[in-house]
Structure formats: structure tokens, C-alpha cells
Design a protein around this nucleic acid. Structure first.
Lengths: 193, 193
DNA sequence: CGTTTTTCTTGATTTATATCAAGAGTTATG
DNA sequence: CATAACTCTTGATATAAATCAAGAAAAACG
């Protein structure tokens, strides 16, 4: 199945769209290729697009005040990815968004998407549902940092997002959990026994 | 100005709504009174409403595995408040939502709101904008926990949300910043000099 | 494949922050 | 307004996790 078919299938799983609305959405898509380790969004630049992808995953990261790289998020296929806050506010992105595999992308530009939101109630609805998912995911990560210990956070990740632990280098997982790679290594040894 | 007028004014600041749409929205509002320290949402119960409030603030909190109360969020007037994840997913709320002042509330029930979303594109748009704001706010808090030290987080809060530090007991601020009250006290002494 | 590069683990030490304990302010209340 | 009930601060000590350092394991590459 090609990328466009996958896209339609994915959208239809979220909300029912008429053929005409789906066609409208598909009309604004732009095809793009991205290399492994290439950046979809660079820190300190404004992000004006959302992309759809069918394989691999993206990593979000940031350099803190000591110049240390901190990973804040992962987005797995299939789905949409963007530097959400930058897209919505129009301010510069605080994070780099990096493709962790070679991928085919379908790009939706903000300008075109906003036009569609105005034209179509159903597509506006899609936008709301996606915004709600982003909010929920972010809150989950926030709560794990605020409410749980390093070990609980890792256990929680294992049960909630096993694909993270399977596919992502542990140094990035550690950073996402707000701990050092050494601490994660010790937590894992303790758990596995 | 009464609560309903404030409500209309607040909505109009976010998006332009016709008189008829505003009337539709106002029709589903239910008036409610809440006492200081009373809970709008109880942990482990499903939240099926959003409320609008004009004074005071709400505190979100949770009990961690050791039974310690952790504050995760504050919502200041004027605005909407709800246990967002519970409202969207229909699952039980992980947090208590507590009124920190005596307040007058305008309640919107999920069921009524969803009807309106379907009927009115403009109100669906309002829902998207609010979801986006929730996502952005949550990401900001998440980033501060992941990227910054205790001291940086407090400095950041002082500049970004000075009203928090002015109105909220320090023990709750400390918890929101992911640190103990004693550590916050020491950070403050160091900063003020 | 064998070599280089990256990733992960382990131990020793340091550090930031938590915890414990007690007293000083501050706010609420009979 | 006096007493009680919180809230905040300060010091002493404990602890979880970071950092430093080096080697082992795994992955990438010519």
C-alpha cells in the first residue's frame, strides 16, 4: 500500500471524512524524503508544517544551559509529527525534531491547513482531536516526572510504551525519563534481577 | 458586570462568535457555587464537565505511592478549568481539582458541549483553540522539569507566572516545581540575597 | 569478517536535593 | 486578643542520583 493510501486509512481511523473532504486534505499534501538522523525541525527556527509518516520514529531534543542534549519526546509511526508549540504560537521551536530512520513524508503546511480548517468543519474536528491527543500525551509524561521515582517511571514506560524500550537507544530513554544513562542501567539491572 | 457577561466577553476575546452561537453556548450553562477548599473534581472519578470562573484559582493535586500530596497545576481566573484527560478519554481522573477560593461557576457538561461541537463549526473551533492551549501549557511545565535545575525552574516561574508566586502558598509552588518546600525556601534565600 | 565507533555497564566519588527536627512567622479561630 | 493551627525558614544529616573513569558489549562500516 502506498503512502497516500496509508494516510487515508489512518485519517479514517480517527474520524469519518467524506471522499470530498479527504480529497481536499490530500490536495495540500507535499511529498518529501528524509534521511536517517536528518532534522525535520531545527531548534530556534519557526515550524510551519505537520508531517505524516509510516515507518520509523522521530526524536525531540534540546540543549540545556550546560550544553547537554536532553531528549523530551518520541513519535512513532504511523502518525503525525510537528513541533507543536511552535506551529501553534508561531514562535521559534525550543526543540530539534530528528528523523531516526530514513522515511517518506507527507507534508501539510500550516497555511494550507488553516485554510482547510476554515472551509471544513470535519477537518477542524480532526484538528481538535489531534490537539487533544497531544495534550493528553504531554500530561502523561509530565505526571510521570512529577509523581514517580526513576524506577517507577521506567517500569511505567515498559508497560505503557514497550516499543520505546525495544527500538530506542537507552541513552535517549534515560534522558526522556529525566535520569542519567548510568542510573537507567542500574535501574534495569535491579529490575531484571 | 455579571458572570454571564464576563463569560461572553472572555469567549469573544478568544474567537469571534455570532450572537446566535453565543446564545447556543450560553443556553447550556449551569450556574454553580463552590466553597473555598471544595473539590470540583475528585481523584478516581470521571470528570464530565468544564467550568468557567471569574475569580480565584484552582489547584490540581495527586497522592503519590508514598501517600505524599503532589501539586501538578494551577488555573487562574478568568478562564476554563476541567480535569482535561478524564474529560476527553472518559477515564477516571488521576488528580483532584480544588477551588482555592469561594467562587461562582458556569458549568458546561460534556454531553451538551459535544452536541454543540457537532452543530457549530465556530464552537468546534473554540474547542480546538482551548485544546491547543492546554497542550502548550502542559509542554511548558514538562520542559521546565526536564531541561532546568530547581533554581532555574523557580526563576522561570517568577518571570513567566509571577501571579503564581504572589498568590499560592510556597509548599504548593515547591511541589509544582518538583522540589521540597525546604529546597524552595533555600532557593529563594539565595536569589533574593 | 576484522576493525572502528558507538552504546552500555560497572565501580568510586561527588553533589544536589530530600528528610528530619525544631523554632519563627503568620494566619485563623473560639 | 490569646491560643491554636498552619506555613515558612534554618541547620544537621541522609540519600538518590549525577558525574567521572574505564572497560565490555554491540553495532556500523570498510
Amino acid at each position: 500500500m502506498d503512502l497516500y493510501s496509508e494516510f487515508r486509512k489512518y485519517i479514517r481511523q480517527i474520524i469519518p471524512l467524506s471522499d470530498s473532504e479527504l480529497a481536499q486534505l490530500q490536495e495540500i499534501l507535499q511529498f518529501k524524503h528524509i534521511q536517517k538522523r536528518e532534522h525535520l525541525v531545527e531548534m530556534n527556527q519557526i515550524c510551519d508544517k505537520v508531517v505524516f509518516f509510516m515507518n520509523g520514529y522521530f526524536r525531540f531534543y534540546h540543549f540545556n544551559n550546560e550544553g547537554i542534549e536532553i531528549t523530551s519526546d518520541f513519535y512513532f509511526a504511523p502518525g503525525f509529527v510537528t513541533s507543536y508549540t511552535s506551529l501553534i504560537t508561531g514562535n521559534i521551536s525550543k526543540v530539534n525534531v530528528q528523523a531516526m530512520d530514513e522515511m517518506q513524508l507527507l507534508v501539510l503546511y500550516k497555511h494550507d491547513l488553516e485554510d482547510l480548517y476554515q472551509k471544513s468543519h470535519a477537518i477542524e474536528h480532526l484538528g481538535r482531536v489531534i490537539a487533544e491527543q497531544v495534550a493528553i500525551t504531554s500530561e502523561k509524561h509530565l505526571f510521570s516526572l512529577l509523581f514517580q521515582s526513576a524506577e517507577e517511571r521506567y517500569q511505567n514506560l515498559l508497560s505503557q510504551n514497550p516499543e520505546f524500550v525495544k527500538s530506542i537507544p537507552l541513552q535517549y530513554i534515560a534522558s526522556y525519563l529525566g535520569i542519567s544513562p548510568e542510573t537507567l542501567s542500574r535501574v534495569r539491572r535491579k529490575i531484571i534481577g
